[in-house]
């Protein structure tokens, strides 16, 4: 029972790292970016390629996954995304679906369509018992890493100068620009970090979620659920939503496997009916 809870929490933490970039672009910048999962996939494949072709140890590939995904995110933001900030949601949806199709077919061509495995180092394999709860070492590792990231993100957003600039730029672009905040640069940096985190999440999650070229579409719904259910006003909402989603997913697959993902979709629709702006939305926005 508690083991399942722990597994759920770690999956939820992982989902948060995967989706938090989207929480910023979609939630704060109001850009419907369905291609977010593509960056996660890139991160996952960076790890796979680095480990299989160049023999880089698993832990060393993680920063690599972050950096490469962030670099790709930065380039795409500067060249393509930047033209679409003010456009209609339909345009943004079409554009990002186009990117997803390209990423999926491109990855298929590059790496083949078979699922990839990540071989974990010995130290992260296996389970141990702690007060009667079976804890997977890798799961614990995930919880620690993702927990640190979540705290760091929250502090960056709420306490640093960069965070307040970002919030100002999101709330009112024109006024922020008038105050001398370089909105373009901040958006580009935010987008890059968000993509990088997705890449890191993809690398970390390759073991648990699996990795093949259909990854962006398979988990797109999950990322979107985290953001929409969590609400778009802070980073805490998506975090709690990700935890709930992780626990619900693992729990329902364990207790009622015949229902599959049914529970999650039903819960999401129910939540959105009751609170169309998400569970943790600030009132009045």
């Amino acid at each position: 029972m508690l083991t399942i809870l722990f597994d759920g929490i770690s999956t939820g933490m992982l989902l948060f790292v995967l989706a938090c970039g989207l929480a910023v672009t979609l939630g704060l910048m109001n850009f419907v970016n369905l291609a977010h999962g593509a960056f996660a996939m890139v991160g996952g494949y960076v790890t796979v390629i680095a480990m299989q072709r160049f023999g880089v140890p698993f832990l060393a590939t993680l920063p690599l996954a972050f950096l490469i995904a962030a670099a790709i995110g930065l380039v795409l933001e500067r060249t393509l995304y930047v033209h679409l900030y003010g456009r209609s949601h339909l345009d943004q949806v079409m554009f990002s679906i186009g990117l997803v199709f390209m990423a999926m077919a491109g990855m298929d061509w590059f790496m083949g369509s078979s699922p990839q495995n990540v071989i974990l180092p010995e130290a992260l394999k296996g389970r141990f018992d702690f007060a009667g709860i079976g804890i997977g070492r890798y799961r614990l590792f995930l919880v620690v890493i993702c927990g640190i990231l979540a705290v760091a993100l929250q502090l960056t957003l709420s306490k640093t100068r960069f965070g307040s600039r970002l919030r100002a730029a999101v709330d009112d672009q024109r006024v922020a620009r008038g105050l001398g905040i370089r909105v373009q640069t901040i958006f580009a940096a935010t987008f890059a970090v968000g993509s990088g985190l997705a890449g890191l999440g993809g690398a970390l999650g390759a073991e648990i979620l699996g990795l093949d070229p259909s990854f962006p579409v398979k988990y797109m719904v999950f990322f979107l659920i985290v953001v929409t259910v969590g609400g778009t006003s802070s980073i805490v909402g998506p975090f709690l939503a990700a935890l709930m989603l992780g626990i619900a997913d693992v729990g329902s697959k364990y207790y009622v496997p015949e229902l599959g993902s049914f529970v999650i979709y039903a819960v999401m629709i129910a939540v959105l009916i009751v609170r169309p702006n998400g569970l943790f939305a600030r009132p009045g926005r």
Binding site: T232, S261, I269, P276
Partner: peptide, 23 residues
């Protein structure tokens, strides 16, 4: 369900209904 909320909520609801049916 679609009447409620913003564009984003509509996207999610329509996507959710389709996923629900698929499942």
């Amino acid at each position: 369900l679609v009447l409620r909320g913003s564009d984003l909520t509509r996207l999610m609801i329509t996507l959710g209904v389709a996923s629900l049916l698929h499942e």
